[in-house]
């Protein structure tokens, strides 16, 4: 496997408000290549919102988010194009087969053979020509993971990657993360499950704020 381009990210005092409601505030971290950041917190503590802010979808946050790509300079702005995004929704079109879904997301520079490789990696190769509507929830999640593997993104942002997956599936995610960090990729993950990736990992916990 080739090493990935570098992407590091630094957040300083990042907060998000929706109108007069504060969703979260005071998020500080620095994430280096080949490292993993796990965001924990109860339901409704703003994990998904934080991921969307880091992912560059929202422009109305406060604080500072800087990125560092191949050069050593930290820049402000959206990391768009460098992110492998896995949200709650799997981005699957029901009418298309598993193979066609993956082909749609295949980057221009990547050869078609990669599709078979990633299907094998997440163990859905037997479903190759099945229409996606017939997939189970776990198989859909595996298909979404396969889509993630297609791109050569230095930064992964995963929202509950193990949702709908069995123990074996969770092990698969840990293995994929290990391979990703081995190629100097980094990842930011929101998760309830005790993922134990084999890489330097730091944690952030979002508390639903109560006045002491």
């Amino acid at each position: 496997m080739h090493p990935l381009p570098i992407c590091a990210i630094r957040c300083q005092n990042v907060g998000l408000s929706r109108g007069s409601t504060s969703v979260f505030m005071g998020v500080n971290f620095e994430l280096h290549p080949a490292n993993i950041l796990i965001i924990q917190g109860e339901n409704g503590s703003g994990k998904t919102s934080l991921l969307r802010v880091i992912g560059g979808f929202s422009q109305s946050f406060s604080g500072m988010i800087q990125h560092c790509f191949d050069t050593k300079n930290w820049i402000n702005g959206s990391p768009t194009g460098n992110i492998g995004w896995l949200g709650h929704a799997n981005a699957i079109k029901d009418e298309l087969t598993v193979f066609e879904n993956l082909k749609f997301w295949l980057p221009k520079a990547v050869p078609k053979e990669k599709i078979d490789l990633v299907m094998e990696k997440v163990q859905i190769k037997t479903l190759r020509h099945q229409r996606s509507y017939s997939l189970s929830a776990g198989e859909r999640r595996r298909l979404a993971l396969a889509r993630l593997l297609l791109g050569r993104h230095p930064l992964w942002i995963l929202d509950e990657p193990s949702a709908n997956l069995d123990i074996e599936g969770r092990k698969l995610i840990e293995q994929l993360l290990a391979e990703h960090t081995a190629r100097r990729g980094s990842a930011i993950i929101a998760s309830h499950d005790r993922l134990r990736p084999d890489a330097p990992t730091s944690y952030i916990k979002l508390h639903t704020g109560h006045r002491a």
């Binding site: 992912g55 560059g56 992110i83 699957i92």
Partner: peptide, 13 residues
């Protein structure tokens, strides 16, 4: 918008 296609589309640049 609902099934996440646009999320991935945008984050792929």
């Amino acid at each position: 918008l609902r099934d996440g296609t646009l999320d991935c589309w945008v984050s792929d640049g």
